[in-house]
Design a binder for these strands. Sequence first.
DNA 1: TAAGATACAACGAAGTTCGGACTATTCAAT
DNA 2: ATTGAATAGTCCGAACTTCGTTGTATCTTA
Lengths: 143, 143
Amino acid sequence: MSDPTEDQLAALGTAFDTFARRYKLADARRSERPLAELDKAVLLYVADHAGCGPTDVARFLAVPTTTLSSATDRLVKRGLLKRERIEADRRAVALSLSEAGTAYAQGQVETYRQMYMLMLSRLSAEERDRFIAMITKIVYNDD
Amino acid sequence: MSDPTEDQLAALGTAFDTFARRYKLADARRSERPLAELDKAVLLYVADHAGCGPTDVARFLAVPTTTLSSATDRLVKRGLLKRERIEADRRAVALSLSEAGTAYAQGQVETYRQMYMLMLSRLSAEERDRFIAMITKIVYNDD
DNA sequence: TAAGATACAACGAAGTTCGGACTATTCAAT
DNA sequence: ATTGAATAGTCCGAACTTCGTTGTATCTTA
């Protein structure tokens, strides 16, 4: 298969660039100091992996464990995250969201949902499926 | 036109999520301490807008001017950016890239180019055009 | 020509990242 | 059983970044 043309590459570049600046989504909880980017990522990850350990999260997000420790500290301090020692391995800690953390995560997810909605609404019904299929291919079929 | 389905929204969400983690591109100049995200953005902007002022950049990137001042400071200190008083308005400063800055920017652009290349290479020739058309529609036709 | 708007920079407080050192456990191999 | 190595996490502190406040020229305009 022939290579993409320079025009295509350039077009994709400007599109992504604009994209990134445009869809810099706002925080759920306003008023309070917004969470650090990392903290939000941690929250979202734990939302889908209740009981996981800090190391799991650190590996997934590709940050040093000490950095992740800071993040969980902040989240616990804010009452969004729970840290519990577990029986099976007493060195380990199990992370899970508190009531408030769950609410925050849901708000965040909802915000994303609306953003995606807005994006897809620009495409026709058939285009939507095609677009999703393509971006999925790009994301997952990469060596 | 009917709304996107929940399935579509969910699929797009996971795709983007993975996308963001996967394509966290490395820095051009390794070895030295990597530039802050903001600094890279500034460099890329100035590369395309030689002679612009700090305020322009700040507005474009949506950060406070003081923050941008810090960024230009760092860049100047590293020898990547030049700051020059201009005649027309002596309060103003004209930003432009130094030799090294230009090299850095080019390296960065090249890295992006390769990333886009990798992405598009996953699609067939016709898909590429369609994909670019769609993402462009999404990015630019948004209220 | 004085009052106000502009373009920036200096300073400093508050926060984030992450390497190094340290504690508590668990595992593995005598 | 015992001990030496790996593991899970945390604590500490240095180096950075962000951004509000304050201050300084320099236009602008009434």
